[in-house]
Design a binder for these strands. Structure first.
Lengths: 201, 201
DNA sequence: CCTACCGATCGGTAGG
DNA sequence: CCTACCGATCGGTAGG
């Protein structure tokens, strides 16, 4: 529980701190159940101060989602850089995505359901960020289909895949017997027609 | 917008009406963003009256979840009654589940994420209802694995399957080009090793 | 970014 | 199940 004072707006990462704290609280408690006071307290501010950085609680959610998604996208792109084999690339995408979801601080993809609190304009901007996030996925799926390793690469396949992965946040327990690596492998094995070499080694 | 008066507690389905309205609102707006006044208004009561039927807003959520899950389970059991072939049975389970999720009034499985608002005891009771719901699924998966139509029937497979299905509520649009039947078929095709005859007919 | 504050809303209750 | 209501909380703002 940090509790420091600082000069007006001269610390450029207080905004980022607010976003990180907000994202975490929104994921854990939900948007409506999180108060702006919770967020302020998490970064050692007074109740009114978040509104110096963001116009409204909704703005905070919107920014947390978009910047979180774009950060996740950077992580994806860095991870698949130079990975030519589409099967291996998919594996890396899945593992990286699960890392963001289950191990990260800032599990933004999980906030989709909270966008119902936003207006159409904000929802549109978030949808655009999601589209950006999905590009490398669709590309890998298309290549896999072209190589005959996937029966179809139609959009529902990508969405069903995201469903498998994202829903795991509801049941996955880090202290259980299933590692994130194994979970990633299980998801990939379900997707690909012929079970990859690493299924059960 | 119903608006009737009635005698104290003598209409036995007012409780059920409250539950149905609550479930719908909780799914659409989330637990925290739904007020007990919203729920009261949806069934034509005054703001204080839901508390004649339920001790608290949390009780309402708990009851809506458990009774909704058990109703969904009845629907599942009725649908697979007499279906001996496990592949066909899985198909029926998937289609029925998607019906509950995407076409029903009372899409209780979607409320999992809202259980964070409840205490451990209530969460335990809901987890038990979920376990009951999953029994016929695990049974079908086991039979499919035994018949060699599924690489594995370990628990993650069932959970990944539920993920595919449940997450669809975030993106599926009834007015789009994809019918619920097609979505069900796509999910089953992803799961089973050899694409079933009906993939693209 | 803090202090001090407002107006609105909300879950819940007493008493009938 | 309604009326009338309370105490607490919350998003947001003025003014510095």
């Amino acid at each position: 529980m940090p509790r420091r004072k600082s000069e007006p707006g001269l610390e450029p990462n207080r905004r980022a701190e607010l976003l990180r704290a907000a994202a975490k609280l929104f994921v854990d408690k939900g948007f409506a159940a999180t108060t702006t006071r919770d967020i302020a307290e998490a970064v050692g501010m007074r109740s009114g101060s978040p509104f110096y950085h963001f116009r409204s609680k909704q703005e905070l959610l919107k920014a947390a989602m978009i910047e979180g998604l774009d950060a996740g996208r950077e992580r994806l792109l860095a991870a698949i850089d130079g990975v030519a084999d589409p099967e291996q690339r998919l594996r890396v995408l899945v593992r990286t995505h699960l890392g963001t979801l289950l191990e990260g601080d800032c599990r933004s993809p999980l906030l989709v359901s909270e966008t119902r609190a936003l207006d159409d304009k904000a929802r549109g901007e978030i949808a655009a960020a999601f589209d950006r996030y999905q590009v490398p996925w669709q590309q890998a799926l298309d290549e896999l289909a072209a190589a005959g390793k996937l029966a179809s690469a139609a959009p529902p396949v990508r969405l069903l895949l995201f469903g498998m992965l994202n829903w795991s946040s509801h049941w996955y327990r880090p202290d259980g017997t299933l590692s994130v690596d194994e979970l990633a492998e299980a998801a990939v094995a379900l997707l690909l027609r012929q079970p990859p070499q690493g299924t059960k080694r």
